[in-house]
Structures are given as C-alpha cells and as structure tokens.
Computed example of a mutant assay.
Amino acid sequence: MKEKTDKATFVLQVFESIAKDYDRMNTLLSFYQHKRWRKFTMKKMAVKPGDTAIDVCCGTGDWAIALAEASHTGRVVGLDFSANMLQVAQAKLSEKGLEQRVELVEGNAMQLPFPDHSFDHATIGFALRNVPDLVQVLKEMKRVVKPGGQIVSLELSKPTWPPFRAVYFLYFERILPWLGKLFANRYEQYRWLPESLIHFPDYMELARIMREEVGLIDVEVYPLTGGITALHIGRKSADDR
C-alpha cells in the first residue's frame, strides 16, 4: 500500500511540474503522432450524438474535448488529480466555448466519484501506466460505465519486432530525457516516462488483464505505429447491472 501511495505522490509531482509544457512536449516526443492515434481511436469508438463519457486522467483535456465534439449534446467529464493540468484544460475549453459541455473534476482514478452505470464510454489516454494499480482503475472505469458501454485505453506499448524494439528503447531511455531537459528544463520528470513503461504489460498481456481480471468482453487490440502505442477497447457486459 505504501508503495502505491509513494508512486501516486511522485507521479502527481511530475505532472504538476510539467503541465505548462505538456502539450508541446507530447507533440515533440511523439513526432506529431499522438493526434493521429487519438483520431483513429475516436473512429473506432464511434461515439454517437448524445452519448455520455468520462475521460479518466484527462490531463490537459484534448480527449475530453474530442468526446464532447463527437457527442454534441451528451455529458462529458474530464477527471484528473493534477490541478495544474486541469487549469490548462480549462483554458482550452474556454477557447473552444465548451465550458458548459465538459465538466472538469479534480479526483482520484482509483476511486471515481460517480455512481455505477453513469456513462456510455470511459477512456484513459497515456496514463494507465502511471496509476498505482491499473486493474483497480480499469475496474472503476467498468463500474461507472453503463451495461454494454465501452472502456477504452490508448497507451504507450512495446514494439514486438526486436530491431525496432531496440531502437525504440534506446530513444526512450537515452534520448527522451535529454529532450525534456532541452525543451522543458525537466530531466528527472522525463526520465520517469521510460521507467514507467518498463514494468507495464505489453499489449497482449493488457488485453488478457482486461478480459480475465477486469471482466470485460469483446476486447479489441490495435497496435499502432509498429507497436509503440496500442489501443484497447473492451465492453461491459449487458448483463452486468
């Protein structure tokens, strides 16, 4: 329990400190791919007008905004534990005139402050590897989704082709932290990113966890860009009430 608490405290400190640079660095470090990955995800999700959604660990709000634009009139919530990240998200909502459409909540992904069966969709983007207990977070996402609803994770993963995998980890472990130092004056914080991936399950293992430990059905997996990122979509059984 102490280890989980220590991780949560450390991760909060990381994101509080990089919030103002997060979007710029995310674009740089992903080589502009993160927007393409999210666009692919939204296509696969097929959000309908009026659908409700919660974006867990919403960060600076890009996915919550995309969900609101797709649902048109449905309730959308963005939840994050970092006040600084939510402050950036709020500014984006104001710029787009979406303040009345997206509710931002400072909260804990391990204990979502919403009743059972509240949303049609629950998403988490590039954050599942940072939570203290990924199974608990996925179970909470499942709990707050309506029967038949979607639980969606878009996350960094590990390439399966050995030569590409070697180059990928060389970039992630040796080069990425120095880019963080150069462009955001944050070395230790960006060194955490590759460390957070080392013990994170690969995309096949995460799919197994979603099926067997979380109890989702119809789990679909889409490795993207050679497997450096993976999209997982599972459903809550219609009988789960």
Rank of each mutant, 00 (worst) to 15 (best):
I65N: 06
A66I: 07
A66Q: 13
A66W: 05
E69L: 12
E69T: 08
A70V: 08
A70K: 11
S71E: 07
T73E: 11
T73M: 08
G74P: 10
G74K: 12
G74S: 10
R75N: 12
V76W: 09
V76R: 09
V77T: 14
V77N: 09
G78F: 09
G78Q: 08
G78W: 08
L79H: 07
F81C: 14
F81K: 14
S82E: 02
S82V: 03
A83T: 09
L86Q: 06
L86Y: 05
Q87E: 15
V88L: 12
A89W: 08
A89P: 10
A89V: 09
Q90P: 02
Q90D: 09
A91E: 15
A91N: 13
K92G: 07
S94W: 01
K96W: 00
K96F: 01
G97P: 00
G97A: 01
G97H: 00
E99T: 01
E99Q: 04
Q100S: 13
E103D: 10
E103C: 12
E103R: 14
V105L: 10
E106V: 12
N108E: 09
N108C: 11
N108K: 05
N108F: 02
A109F: 02
A109N: 04
A109I: 02
A109H: 02
A109E: 02
Q111W: 06
L112D: 04
P113T: 02
F114M: 04
P115I: 11
P115W: 06
D116S: 13
H117F: 02
H117I: 02
H117D: 11
S118F: 01
F119W: 03
I124K: 01
I124T: 00
G125A: 06
A127I: 13
A127Q: 10
A127P: 07
A127L: 13
L128D: 01
L128F: 03
R129C: 10
N130F: 00
N130R: 01
